[in-house]
Design a protein around this nucleic acid. Structure first.
Lengths: 237, 237
DNA sequence: CTCTCTTTTTCACGAAAAATTAACTCTTCC
DNA sequence: GGAAGAGTTAATTTTTCGTGAAAAAGAGAG
C-alpha cells in the first residue's frame, strides 16, 4: 500500500525538499500552501499523515491543527509538526493540540522521513484494517446500503432494485473508486459462466441510475469512464 | 485489444458465417480448412482462441485438439469445439481432450459469439497481464495519478482527461525520463494497428498540456525533444 | 543578427466511436 | 395469462478523434 501524505507549508524550498524526498521513498504527496487550503483539501481527501508547518500565513498553524482534530473523520490522522522556533512552549502547545510528533527547523530530511515512517507504523497498529469480513452497511452521500437486509436507501427513501441491479450496486459499493471494465463486471457480478453482451452492462447501469441517481445525465454514484468502464465515485465533494 | 481467433472448418458456408460475424464483433479471424493446415499455422501464429469443427477431412478433429494441447506454447489457448453430432460421447471426449467448450450444429451464431466472449474473458482472468508489478499510484511534483481510479490530479485539483489523453499520460508516467518518438507513441499508446498521422500525437500532447501544465509554453511534465519526440520530465526541480 | 527552412503548436470542424435509452422478445414465476 | 426481470437490438445522443492548415517557435547559415 502506498501512503498519502499531506504537506502543509508555504516555503517553496521546503516543499520541494520534502516532497521530492517523500516521493523517492514511494509516498504520494499532496501539497497545501496555506492552512485554508489544507482544510479545504481535507474535505475531499483523507491522507494517511499530515506534515504541518507552524509558521503559516493566514490561519496560524496551531489553529489548523486544532481544526483538523475537530473533524471527526480526521481525528486520528497522525500530524507531524514543523516549527522554526525551538521553543519548548510551541512544542508543548503543539502536542496538546493533538499533534503526534514535533520537529524544529532546520531539520534533517533523514530524520523527518524516519519519524514519518514511525508515525505511520504506529497509526497502522492503532487502526488495524477493518477486516470485518463483510461490512454490514455502507453509506456515501445520500446513498445508504444495508448488505444484510439487501436494502438500499436513497435520500432516506427505500428503493426497490431487481436482483441484478442489487448485485451490481453492491459490487460497486464494496469496491468504490476503482474502475471496472464491462467484462470485469460480467465476471464479478454476473458470474463467469454467462453468455451475455457487454452492452448489457450499459443497459443495467442505465436502469440502475434511473432508480438511484437524482440526475441520471450527471451521475453522482456510478460514473462512466469512457472507453474503459464504470466506477463508483467515492470523491467527497 | 483485438483478439485473434483461429477458425478450423472445412465447410465454406460455416466459415463465412462465423468469420463475418466475428469480424463484425471486432475480432481478427484466421482460417484453416483442415487439421493439418491448422497445426501448420500454429507453428507461426498464436491465436487467442480456437474454434474447431470436429468433422474435418484428414486428421480427425479430436486428434487435432489433442495435438494442439500437446504443444506447450499453446497449452492454454481456449478451444471451442463444434460438432454435428450431439452425442454425449463426443462432448465428453472433446472436453477430455482439452477443449474448453462445446457446441452442436446447428448452432446459433449469437450463442457462439457469446461463448467465445465468455471463454476469452475466462482466459484473460487466468492469465492476467504480466506487468502486474506496476504501482497503483504515481506522484511527481504537483501531478498525482491513481491508475486504478483513472484519476489525475494536478495541484490538488481533479482533471478530466479524455481516454487517449489518459492513456498517453499514464504511459509517460510509467516511463518517465525516456524520450519517445511519435511513431513509438502511436505504437504504445494507440496500439500497433492504427493508421493515424504522427502529427496527431502533437495535437494530443497539446491538448493534454493545456489541461495539466501550468504554462503550456514551458511544460513541466511532458517536454518536447525537438526532431526526436517527447518525454516525461522527471528531473527534481 | 536576420533570413529562411524546418518543426511544433494550436485551431476548427466533420467523422467516428462510445454510451445511453427505448422498445421489443423471451423466460420465469405466481 | 400476466407481471416482472433480463437480454438484445437499434435508434439517439454524447463524447472523442483525426485531419489539414495557419500560426508560432526553433534551428542553422551566412
Amino acid at each position: 500500500m502506498q501512503f498519502k501524505i499531506l504537506v502543509v507549508d508555504d516555503e517553496q524550498d521546503i516543499i520541494e525538499l520534502i516532497s521530492s524526498n517523500l516521493q523517492r521513498e514511494g509516498y504520494t504527496v499532496i501539497l497545501a500552501m496555506t492552512g485554508e487550503e489544507a482544510l479545504e483539501l481535507l474535505k475531499t481527501t483523507t491522507p494517511d499523515l499530515i506534515v504541518l508547518d507552524l509558521m503559516l500565513p493566514g490561519i496560524q498553524g496551531l489553529e489548523v491543527c486544532r481544526q483538523i482534530r475537530a473533524l471527526p473523520e480526521h481525528a486520528d490522522i497522525p500530524i507531524l509538526i514543523l516549527s522554526a522556533k525551538g521553543s519548548e512552549v510551541d512544542r508543548i502547545l503543539g502536542l496538546e493540540m493533538g499533534a503526534d510528533d514535533y520537529m524544529t527547523k532546520p531539520f534533517s530530511v533523514r530524520e523527518l522521513i524516519s519519524r514519518i515512517r514511525a508515525a505511520l507504523r504506529k497509526s497502522a497498529k492503532a487502526h488495524p484494517p477493518k477486516k470485518t469480513a463483510h461490512e454490514r452497511t455502507f453509506s456515501h452521500k445520500q446513498l445508504f446500503i444495508d448488505f444484510d437486509k439487501y436494502e438500499v436507501t436513497i435520500k432516506n427513501k427505500k428503493v426497490e432494485l431487481s436482483p441484478i441491479q442489487t448485485k451490481l450496486l453492491f459490487f460497486f459499493a464494496k469496491n468504490p473508486g476503482r474502475v471496472y471494465s464491462r467484462d470485469q463486471l460480467l465476471d464479478q457480478v454476473w458470474g463467469g459462466e454467462v453468455f451475455v453482451t457487454p452492452r448489457n452492462v450499459d443497459v443495467h447501469i442505465s436502469r440502475l441510475r434511473r432508480l438511484i441517481e437524482e440526475d441520471p445525465q450527471n451521475p453522482a454514484y456510478i460514473v462512466t469512464v469512457t472507453s474503459v468502464g464504470y466506477k463508483f465515485d467515492d470523491s467527497k465533494a
